[in-house]
Amino acid sequence: MLIRTEAPADILPIDTLLKSVFETEAEAKLVMKLRENGQRTLSLVACSDEGEVVGHLFFSPVTRDGVDENWQGLAPLAVKAEYQRQGIGQALMEEAKQTLLELGYPVVVVLGHSDYYPKVGFVKAADHGLACQWPVPEEAFMVLELAEGTLAGKTGTIEYSSEFAEL
């Protein structure tokens, strides 16, 4: 299994993967629009030994109360059905955590499954006084502090880029 940064040749395989994993094409359209609009901070793929893209995750900027602090939103994370439950998503996240921290991005938020994301270090954002811009279940909106101490005293509403409003 190889984990690497997205290359131009990966765009269509990523699109196909996202359309196969999610119930609608919304995530695939979102990633394409974020990419086209320059809102991609980090996009990683996991490739099989044969070179097939079998996993993908994508990060884009978020703000806290309208202020850009280099925080990132994870959306989406996808692994091809027959490759799920093999640790690929967690391996993608571990690589992403290290890369984002090295690039100076101290915090990541995610709106996702509360039974999955804590496995890679996410905690409820509400425990840190952070809320999502949309009305979502409290346990589904989570935060991960990459640079220790960054969340101290930081509260407010996390806002995603405008491309998410079209979902």
Rank of each mutant, 00 (worst) to 15 (best):
I3K: 02
I3L: 05
T5E: 15
T5G: 13
E6W: 00
A7I: 08
D10C: 04
I11T: 12
I11S: 14
I11L: 11
I11V: 14
L12V: 13
P13W: 01
I14E: 06
D15V: 01
T16Q: 12
L18C: 12
L18V: 08
S20H: 03
T24P: 04
T24R: 02
E25Y: 08
E27R: 00
E27L: 02
E27A: 08
A28I: 09
V31H: 05
M32V: 10
M32Q: 15
K33M: 13
L34Y: 03
R35V: 06
E36D: 15
G38S: 10
R40K: 15
T41D: 10
L42H: 02
L42Y: 05
S43C: 12
S43Y: 04
S43W: 06
L44R: 00
V45E: 03
V45F: 09
A46T: 07
A46N: 03
C47L: 12
S48K: 03
S48P: 11
D49P: 10
D49W: 02
E50H: 08
E50I: 02
E50L: 13
V53P: 01
V54L: 00
V54E: 04
V54K: 02
G55K: 05
G55H: 07
H56W: 02
H56R: 07
H56D: 10
L57D: 03
L57Q: 01
P61G: 01
V62Q: 04
E69I: 13
E69G: 11
N70F: 09
Q72A: 13
G73N: 12
L74Y: 05
A75S: 15
A78N: 04
V79F: 00
A81Q: 14
A81E: 14
A81R: 11
E82Q: 12
E82A: 09
Y83H: 10
Q84T: 13
R85G: 00
R85D: 03
Q86W: 01
G89E: 06
Q90S: 14
A91Q: 15
A91S: 13
L92F: 03
M93Q: 05
A96K: 07
Q98R: 14
T99G: 11
T99L: 10
L101Y: 13
E102T: 11
L103C: 11
L103D: 14
G104A: 09
V107G: 07
V108M: 12
G112H: 06
G112K: 07
H113A: 09
H113I: 08
S114I: 06
D115Y: 12
Y117H: 06
P118V: 02
P118T: 02
V120S: 10
G121S: 07
G121C: 05
V123T: 15
K124C: 10
A125C: 05
A126V: 15
A126N: 06
D127A: 14
G129Q: 10
G129T: 00
G129V: 07
L130P: 06
L130K: 07
L130N: 01
A131I: 01
Q133G: 14
W134Y: 15
W134Q: 14
P135A: 15
P137E: 05
P137N: 00
M142N: 01
V143H: 09
V143L: 12
V143I: 10
E145S: 07
A147V: 06
E148L: 10
L151H: 03
L151T: 05
A152N: 11
G156H: 03
G156S: 05
T157C: 11
I158C: 02
S161W: 13
S161L: 12
S162N: 13
S162F: 14
F164K: 04
L167Q: 04
